[in-house]
Amino acid sequence: MLQYVTAYISTVIVFLAIDYVWLTQVATRFYFDRIGHLLMAKPNMAAAGAFYILYVVGLVIFAVAPALKSESVVTAIILGALFGFFTYATYDVTNYATLKDWPFLVVVVDVLWGTFLGGISAGAGYLLTRAFT
């Protein structure tokens, strides 16, 4: 049980740190320029918090835990990237299919970001868990 708690804490710290830099330093202008008219003045932090909690639970269940079982960082990275790809693609392709002004470029960039973020976070979560347990 301690290993899974460590996996969650390690993965969530990495995920939040990388996504924070992406959202505040790198992609802010990109998203604002393309979907700014859809964005709230202030994000709903409770909903954002729920996303981060649930998303990292998914990363741990579907990527970090299998990697710990197989003792393979490559497994963590591949499964984390796949989890990121499918979850971000579900969100973005659904938006592209249902929202009038959802740009295809946002779909591509966001799905690539989710794939990268999932892989890196799961890989780092695995390595940190192995180091601390």
Rank of each mutant, 00 (worst) to 15 (best):
V14W: 05
Q25I: 12
V106T: 13
L39T: 10
I35G: 04
W102N: 04
K69C: 01
V5D: 04
T115N: 10
A46P: 00
F15S: 07
R29K: 15
Y4V: 09
F85T: 12
P66I: 12
V108E: 04
D92K: 00
A97I: 11
N95R: 03
I120K: 05
F85K: 06
V93Q: 06
V56Y: 00
F104C: 05
M1R: 07
P66V: 10
D101C: 11
V5A: 13
L112Y: 02
V109A: 15
D33N: 15
V107D: 02
F116S: 05
L39M: 15
R29T: 15
L68C: 01
G125V: 06
A48R: 05
I78S: 07
T90Q: 00
F32N: 15
L79P: 06
F51K: 12
S10N: 08
Y52H: 12
R34V: 07
I61R: 13
V21R: 13
K100C: 02
I35W: 08
A46E: 11
D19C: 07
G123M: 00
A89L: 06
W22V: 09
Y96V: 04
Y52F: 12
T24H: 15
S121T: 03
D101H: 15
A46D: 09
I35E: 08
T87Q: 11
L38M: 14
Q25R: 15
D19E: 15
F83A: 04
W102Y: 14
T24S: 13
V107Y: 09
A89M: 09
Q3D: 08
G114T: 04
I9Y: 11
D92M: 07
A7S: 14
I9P: 01
T6M: 14
G125T: 02
A41V: 13
G118F: 03
V93S: 03
G49C: 08
Y20Q: 10
W102M: 09
V93N: 02
G49F: 10
I53T: 12
Q25L: 15
S72N: 03
T133D: 11
T90G: 12
V74T: 15
W113M: 01
V111T: 10
R130H: 06
A67E: 02
L127N: 03
T90D: 04
F30K: 09
A122Q: 05
T28V: 14
G123W: 01
Y126L: 02
L16V: 13
Y4N: 10
T75C: 01
V107F: 03
Y4K: 12
L128P: 05
F116W: 06
G114R: 06
A76D: 05
A97Q: 07
I13L: 14
F83M: 10
L127Q: 09
T11S: 08
A41R: 11
Y126F: 14
Y91A: 12
A41W: 10
L39H: 07
Y8N: 01
V12D: 01
M40C: 04
Y31D: 15
L68W: 03
F62W: 11
P66Q: 10
V64H: 05
S10Y: 00
